[in-house]
């Protein structure tokens, strides 16, 4: 089992024929992901990587029955692409694109929510169900199948965490890179219950960062709803206090979003918090052998 995606998930790629889209779609295909086609306006009717290209997401969905889209569209057009996917009935858009304007993503996310489309990202490595389906840019070979779910804001820490879990002899059910932009799709709070409900997932690794309060919300949620053991690391304990301008950031969030604040909240929720990412693997071993 897994969450959100598996070997039967039908995926289209928006921005299929661009250099990024091509490179990573090829890697995903090699991993076994069921990519059934792609969308590039004005290239409809062509074949790319052996898969059909469509002008619009609607056409692609009608012809292939795809439910997930992997989005590689450049930042200036990415919101448009995400809204197109939502409009066409896509159920989950995985947005890899980095550098999308915040205002655009705000609008795209609001529309996706209205259309009941889930989103992951932007600016993220994507989602992978080990040895079944990789939708994103992560190196597939480090994700061995196993019993640990992983949620991370940071791309490289996703790899670091998964690698350690596997080196300790465990493996991954599904790993989700949620991205660290101001506006993101699925976050800890939405993903944790999916892992809780997944019979194969026995422990959850959650990797966060300074800034914002998603980890604090997650802590409150874990306390009330999660029975499986959770291991957490928050990056940025030694990050310098940023030079800043004005007071608005500090006023709006209430808290400062420091690593300490988040670590304390998670610890209070019964989470096993590690101070160095080098200890993630060991901590997973510890909670799983209890």
């Amino acid at each position: 089992m897994s969450i959100l995606v598996n070997k039967d998930t039908k995926v289209i790629v928006q921005g299929f024929t661009g250099s990024e889209g091509t490179f990573h779609a090829e890697q995903c295909l090699a991993y076994g992901t069921k990519i059934v086609g792609g969308v590039t306006p004005n290239k409809g009717g062509e074949t790319h990587l052996g898969k059909p290209v469509f002008n619009t997401v609607k056409e692609a969905v009608a012809a292939t029955g795809a439910t997930v889209s992997m989005v590689f569209v450049p930042p200036a057009f990415v919101a448009d692409a995400v809204m197109e996917a939502a409009d066409a009935g896509i159920e989950l858009a995985v947005i890899i694109t980095e550098g999308a304007p915040v205002r655009d993503m705000q609008m795209a996310k609001a529309y996706a929510t209205k259309k009941n489309m889930k989103t992951i990202g932007p600016n993220c490595p994507g989602i992978i169900t080990a040895e079944e389906c990789k939708i994103g840019i992560m190196p597939g070979n480090i994700f061995k199948k196993g019993n640990v779910g992983l949620i991370s804001k940071s791309g490289t820490l996703t790899y670091e965490g998964a690698n350690q879990v596997c080196k300790e002899g465990f493996g991954i059910t599904t790993a989700v890179g949620i991205g660290g932009d101001p506006i993101i799709g699925l976050s800890y709070k939405q993903l944790l219950p999916l892992f809780e409900a997944d019979p194969e997932t026995e422990a959850i690794v959650m990797i966060g960062e300074i800034g914002g309060d998603l980890e604090i919300q997650a802590a409150a949620f874990i306390k009330e709803n999660i029975t499986k053991p959770v291991v957490a690391f928050i990056a940025g304990q030694t990050a310098p206090k940023g030079k800043r301008m004005g007071h608005a950031g500090a006023i709006v969030s209430g808290g400062a979003g420091t690593a300490k604040e988040k670590m304390d909240a998670l610890e209070a929720a019964g989470v096993k918090v590690v101070v160095s990412p080098a200890d993630i693997g060991k901590a997973v071993k510890e909670v799983l052998s209890k």
Partner: peptide, 12 residues
């Protein structure tokens, strides 16, 4: 490589 791992490295 990567901001998260960079911060994690500093922390370590």
């Amino acid at each position: 490589n990567g901001a998260g791992l960079a911060m994690g490295t500093m922390d370590t």
